[in-house]
C-alpha cells in the first residue's frame, strides 16, 4: 500500500457570517491513496465544493488536519501553498476558467510561468500537451473560438502541464452535453489508468460518477457513504 496522497482527520469548516458562525463541514475523515479515482456526490449545500476548495489549498479548514502529499498544509506559508498548487495539484473547473485574451498554447503554458520555465520550453511543452488532448492544430486559437468540450480539454491540458500527482475536478462536465461529457470522462479515465494520476471529481450526474472506482457521498457536511461505485448507490 502506498502512502495516501490525501489524509484528512476531523476536519471542520465554519463560515463566519453576520448572523454568526455557520458550520459547513462537520468533521470529515478521509484518506485517498495514490492512483485512486474518487467521485464526490451530494446535494447542493452539502459542503462538497467547500471540501474541494480545501483539498486544493484555495481555502483553509477551521480545525482538523490535512496532509497533502505527506505535508501538513497548516504548516505551509503562502509561497509553499502556491508551489503545491503549481506542482502537485491540477485544477479543472466547471466553467473552464481559461484566460480569454490568451491563445490556447499560452493558456496551457500559464502554470509554467510561475515555476521559472524558459519561454521556449514552455511553448514546446504546451504544444505537446495540446497534442495529447487532441487540440494540437488549434494552438493559436482563442478560447471563444472553440467549443465547450474543447475548452475543457484545454483546461485539462493546463492542469496536466506540470505533471501533477492529483487532479481536482469540480463538476467538469456540468456545462457540457452528455456526449462531450463522456469524451472528457474517458480522458480522465485514461489519465488515471495510464499515468496513475489520482483524480478527485465532484459531480451531480450518476453516469459520470460511474467512471470512478470509489464514491464519497456528502450530506449536510458529513460523509454518509464511502465505498465502491455501484449503479444502485448513485
Amino acid at each position: 500500500m502506498t502512502a495516501p496522497v490525501i489524509h484528512i482527520e476531523r476536519l471542520h469548516k465554519n463560515y463566519e457570517t453576520a448572523a454568526g458562525s455557520v458550520p459547513v463541514l462537520k468533521g470529515i475523515d478521509l484518506s485517498i491513496n495514490a492512483g485512486e479515482f474518487v467521485a464526490i456526490m451530494g446535494p447542493s449545500g452539502s459542503g462538497k465544493s467547500t471540501f474541494m476548495n480545501i483539498l486544493g489549498c484555495l481555502d483553509e479548514p477551521t480545525t482538523g488536519r490535512y496532509l497533502l502529499n505527506g505535508s501538513d498544509v497548516r504548516s505551509l506559508n503562502g509561497d509553499a501553498l502556491a508551489r503545491l498548487r503549481n506542482q502537485v495539484i491540477g485544477f479543472v473547473f466547471q466553467g473552464f476558467n481559461l484566460l480569454p485574451r490568451a491563445d490556447l498554447a499560452s493558456n496551457v503554458a500559464l502554470p509554467l510561468l510561475y515555476c521559472n520555465e524558459k519561454k521556449h520550453a514552455r511553448l514546446m511543452r504546451a504544444h505537446a500537451m495540446l497534442d495529447r488532448v487532441g487540440l494540437g492544430q488549434h494552438a493559436s486559437a482563442h478560447p471563444n473560438e472553440i467549443s465547450g468540450g474543447q475548452q475543457q480539454r484545454v483546461a485539462i491540458a493546463r492542469a496536466l502541464i506540470n505533471h501533477p500527482k492529483l487532479i481536482l475536478a469540480d463538476e467538469p462536465t456540468g456545462n457540457l452535453d452528455t456526449k462531450t461529457g463522456d469524451e472528457i470522462m474517458s480522458l480522465f479515465k485514461q489519465l488515471n489508468q495510464e499515468d496513475g494520476i489520482t483524480i478527485v471529481l465532484v459531480t451531480h450526474e450518476p453516469d459520470i460518477a460511474l467512471y470512478a472506482h470509489r464514491l464519497v457521498k456528502f450530506v449536510d457536511g458529513l460523509i454518509t457513504y464511502d465505498g465502491a461505485v455501484m449503479a444502485a448507490h448513485t
Binding site: R85, N86, Y114, C115
Partner: peptide, 16 residues
C-alpha cells in the same frame, strides 16, 4: 478578479 483567482489556483504566488 476572476483572472487573478485562476492564476492563484494554478500556482501564482502573491508576489507574482
Amino acid at each position: 478578479t476572476r483572472e487573478i483567482g485562476i492564476r492563484i489556483a494554478i500556482g501564482a504566488r502573491q508576489k507574482d
